[in-house]
Write a protein that binds this DNA or RNA. Structure first.
Lengths: 139, 139
DNA sequence: GTTCTTGCAAAATATTTGCAAGACG
DNA sequence: CGTCTTGCAAATATTTTGCAAGAAC
């Protein structure tokens, strides 16, 4: 059962797998694109946004999810890929300015740059904005 | 005088160089880091934020400035470098999670990636988060 | 029973708009 | 005059917190 995997994932970080937390992790796991707090709230009409918010922040602390801003006006959350280490998952995200959807291009390797001396990197978001293929073909 | 250059810059795009607009362009031109609406408002205590906001949006439309989100919770604005064309200025930005400052690494070339077929790119923001050299040395 | 978690409401922060008064051409 | 711009206030949108009730250990 899927819940077992999710429970393990949380337990491995010492997080108690409460009902709401499992629901939040699950919608993130099943989503095919990054989700905002409002998105998740809409998908789980049982839980208030404050509880979801706190679950997400807890996951952020434990590097189970990461967040980024895509220009939509609201933070987007995504499950982290692998084991936790630094830097966090490095993704290429694309925000379509027409349909306002955000895509995560996992297949595209994020190019790494050299930072000036003394700067330490935690995470990278390669954020591209433009028009997605669907909107492009619609004209 | 500096104003002449700024007036030309606006006039070249058919934008009337009003007092507030000139002030806004000037603080952006003189700033050594990206500014938020609140930053600009604080620097120009004569103009209300709504007017500054509208000036910025006008500049955005005309590609005199570009904006991006750095994770601070508020949009940051920067003057565009050159003539307008696509894609917009491609910068590497660094957000320090300790001092909350945003750096613009103009010297670092943003690596270009190939998007999936059909996707058209307008702008890119290579957003790095971590700890800046100053905070790093302070421990 | 002590700590952790939830739900509701409301505070805090940012962005955006309505509208009447004023400036400009 | 007619259009563009400004200033104030207020509406929206989003994130975040306070607190008391409830659940877990």
């Amino acid at each position: 059962m899927m819940n077992d995997l999710l429970i393990e994932k949380l337990a491995a970080r010492g997080i108690r797998p409460t009902a709401v937390r499992l629901l939040v992790v699950r919608v993130l796991a099943e989503a095919d694109s990054p989700l905002s707090l409002a998105d998740i709230e809409a998908m789980l009409d049982t839980a208030p946004k404050s509880t979801i918010f706190r679950a997400l922040n807890l996951f952020l602390e434990h590097h189970i999810v990461h967040s980024f801003e895509d220009g939509s006006g609201s933070l987007k959350y995504e499950l982290c890929d692998g084991e936790h280490g630094n830097p966090d998952d490095m993704h290429t995200h694309f925000f379509c300015e027409k349909c306002q959807r955000t895509f995560c291009f996992k297949a595209i390797q994020v190019p790494v740059i050299d930072l000036p001396k003394g700067f330490r990197m935690h995470s990278v978001n390669y954020m591209v904005k433009g028009v997605c293929s669907e909107c492009e073909s619609k004209g």
